[in-house]
């Protein structure tokens, strides 16, 4: 499927696709941005989170969802600030708890598309327990995890996805903790849909997000990003553009990965992009509605 995804460097060659000055106003898609909120965003220039926001908006637009039927729930961190900029029902909660708030909202309104937007620390450290339990229940929520492998907002502390050896303000001699593989964790915990891409492969993110949001089950999209302001600086990884380029160079599409020999797979250090799981499992709110029907039918 990566065959028909335009790579960013290809995009640059197609001037017709580069936004014109009045593109913002003409774009139906971007009308999903909030009009009663003043920009700019809190994100550093060059940050990848904005790319994820663009992908999310395009995915929602692609699905033809109205702004009213979508709820965005987030926790705390740079990524968690995303909902405020978008014109949906938006709930910015406490650190790590986005999925727990989303659980109540989804159960109250099973008809709404509830999307939990989290960073790696938010989703997997303080919110790790909620993450595995939401997956286990197969609640029909989309978990969008922007993984930049660092706590950016607090100034660059190591997170549960920081690579071994990576330097952070709280890992001044290099991180010694193995990182969580987010997608593998989600699969093991019981999710229905799991995919990973990067902010460099924005159009691939669009597609994965659209599929995840359409899924009636717990869906996870890991959007690999970077933090040039903290992690990049501490580890001499260059500018935002350099880190964006690294995402292009250091990732491999699942289709290409599958063609590798076992030896090559064992030696692979690149991040694999792709859709790793897409299965049908009983969705929690459907199961609960069935339970209500049984109980109201007189079952004891």
């Amino acid at each position: 499927m990566d065959d028909h995804i335009l790579e960013a460097h290809e995009l640059e060659k197609h001037e017709a696709l580069i936004p014109q000055a009045d593109w913002f106003n003409r774009s139906e898609t971007l009308q999903k941005l909030r009009k009663n909120k003043k920009f700019p965003t809190i994100w550093c220039s060059g940050c990848g989170i904005g790319v994820v926001m663009g992908a999310l908006i395009r995915a929602i637009d692609h699905l033809g969802l109205s702004n009213d039927e979508v709820a965005l729930v987030s926790g705390i961190g740079c990524t968690a600030r995303m909902p405020v900029y978008m014109d949906f029902n938006t709930l910015h909660t406490t650190h790590g708890r986005a999925l727990a708030f989303a659980t109540g909202l989804k159960i109250a309104r099973p008809d709404m598309k509830v999307i939990a937007i989290m960073g790696d620390g938010d989703a997997l450290a303080i919110g790790g327990n909620h993450f595995i339990h939401a997956a286990r229940r197969n609640l029909g929520i989309t978990a969008l995890v922007v993984n930049n492998a660092i706590y950016g907002m607090t100034g660059g502390q190591y997170s549960p996805t920081t690579p071994i050896g990576g330097r952070a303000t709280t890992a001044p001699y290099g991180n010694i903790e193995p990182p969580f593989p987010i997608c593998e964790l989600a699969i093991a915990a019981g999710a229905s849909y799991v995919a990973r891409s990067t902010v460099y492969h924005a159009l691939e993110l669009d597609k994965f997000l659209a599929e995840a949001i359409a899924k009636d089950g717990f869906s996870v999209v890991e959007a690999v990003s970077y933090c040039h302001t903290t992690y990049g600086r501490f580890n001499r990884l260059g500018t935002a553009a350099d880190m964006m380029r690294a995402l292009k160079d250091n990732t491999i599409a699942q289709s290409a990965y599958e063609r590798l020999t076992p030896e090559e797979k064992a030696a692979n250090t690149k991040i694999v992009r792709g859709k790793f799981l897409d299965v049908e499992r009983p969705q929690y709110t459907v199961a609960y509605d069935n339970l209500i029907t049984r109980v109201q039918g007189g079952e004891k």
């Binding site: 029902n89 709930l91 708030f101 659980t103 909202l105 989804k106 159960i107 109250a108 327990n129 209500i292």
Partner: peptide, 25 residues
């Protein structure tokens, strides 16, 4: 026609009831 859920902890329980009330229950 109401709904009950046993959450993974009390933090999540408190969060879930806030979310559900925003959903109208």
């Amino acid at each position: 026609g109401g709904k009950f859920i046993q959450m993974e902890d009390e933090i999540a329980s408190m969060a879930a009831i806030i979310g559900a009330r925003l959903g109208g229950l």
